[in-house]
């Protein structure tokens, strides 16, 4: 008797859970959750805790140190000064190119060529830049030969070196995302706008741009994250002591040169907060505009 009742209850509990969407299949996310907690959430929390355990001073000593030394707090500005314009430039270059490629019948070859720098990696790009853009490099030689400049341009080991390197390594990623957003827009929307009298400029302004805006915001965030954590190029083709002393250099130095893990963690936390601040701002702006389907509305 009692066994049967228990069994019935068990079945009904199972049904009730299944109705809420929890059953054997849902449990498949458990390994993923455990993994994220063990390798992301826990280290993150540990880092946060560690950042309040400075080698010397009170709980906030690391943060006080960071925000009282220009040598440290200036890195935020230095990083922003690189990452923001680079991300914007990459978006602005990618958008018109993606619109061109969209019209091509055979997009694959050009797309492959344009995303080729993904394979280079930051280190090879840096190495190549030292050669190609250096004072003795082909780039300056050609410009000198054609008389476009009178002295070699200084394009490496300064702000512009890191800037160029970030554009080269960031462009493929930005371009790829934007291209897939652009090609995801239903072409009949453009045709409809054209038959209603919209010329190319108006079609872009009234139809494409508002529909692309959410995708552009996402692309901006993802590209910004990459640019913000710039490290190898800031060291190899930048001016790591001054103009391109970005925040990740400060974090690495604390961790690998001073072995001050609490301080390194504190810098990492500051880095995360400032970076997420920009992302949150962009996403908040995004939610102000439309973000529904980009296909034509269907019944």
């Amino acid at each position: 008797m009692s066994g049967a009742t228990l069994n019935e209850e068990r079945v009904s509990l199972r049904t009730r859970l299944a109705e809420k969407g929890i059953d054997g299949t849902t449990l498949l996310i458990l390994p993923g959750i455990i993994f994220i907690f063990a390798l992301f959430v826990y280290p993150f929390c540990y880092g946060l805790w560690l950042s309040f355990q400075p080698k010397v001073g009170g709980a906030l000593a690391n943060y006080e140190k960071f925000f009282s030394q220009p040598f440290l707090y200036n890195t935020i500005w230095t990083t922003m000064r690189l990452a923001l314009p680079v991300t914007l430039i990459n978006l602005l270059i990618s958008l018109p190119i993606a619109f061109r490629v969209r019209l091509m019948r055979n997009q694959r070859l050009l797309t492959t060529l344009l995303i080729l720098p993904i394979t280079l990696g930051t280190v090879l790009v840096a190495e190549g830049m030292i050669f190609y853009l250096g004072p003795q490099g082909w780039f300056n030689r050609i410009l000198l030969t054609f008389g476009l400049i009178s002295a070699p341009l200084k394009l490496v080991n300064n702000y512009w070196g890191v800037f160029i390197s970030l554009v080269i390594t960031g462009f493929p990623f930005t371009f790829l995302l934007i291209l897939s957003y652009v090609t995801g827009i239903d072409p009949s929307l453009e045709q409809a706008a054209a038959t209603l009298g919209a010329n190319a400029r108006n079609r872009f302004r009234e139809v494409f741009f508002p529909l692309l805006l959410p995708g552009l915001a996402i692309t901006f965030c993802l590209a910004f994250v990459q640019a913000y954590s710039v490290l190898p190029s800031a060291v190899l083709v930048g001016d790591p002591a001054n103009a391109t002393r970005v925040i990740s250099i400060a974090a690495y130095q604390a961790a690998t040169e001073e072995y001050d893990y609490p301080m390194a963690s504190a810098i990492a936390m500051i880095m995360g907060v400032t970076q997420l601040g920009v992302v949150a701002l962009v996403l908040a702006l995004r939610s102000l505009v439309y973000r529904g389907p980009v296909a034509a509305a269907k019944g």
């Binding site: 996310i29 993923g32 959750i33 994220i36 390798l39 992301f40 959430v41 826990y42 280290p43 993150f44 540990y46 880092g47 946060l48 560690l50 965030c221 993802l222 994250v225 990459q226 913000y228 954590s229 490290l231 990740s248 974090a251 690495y252 961790a255 893990y261 390194a264 963690s265 810098i267 990492a268 936390m269 880095m271 995360g272 970076q275 997420l276 992302v279």
Partner: peptide, 24 residues
């Protein structure tokens, strides 16, 4: 919430979680 949890490691620069992760 789970979705956000899975998104965060992509939205946070590797250095940010890399340093505490290396420590752990």
């Amino acid at each position: 919430l789970v979705m956000i949890l899975f998104l965060l490691p992509i939205l946070v620069p590797p250095v940010t979680f890399g340093i505490p992760l290396a420590t752990v």
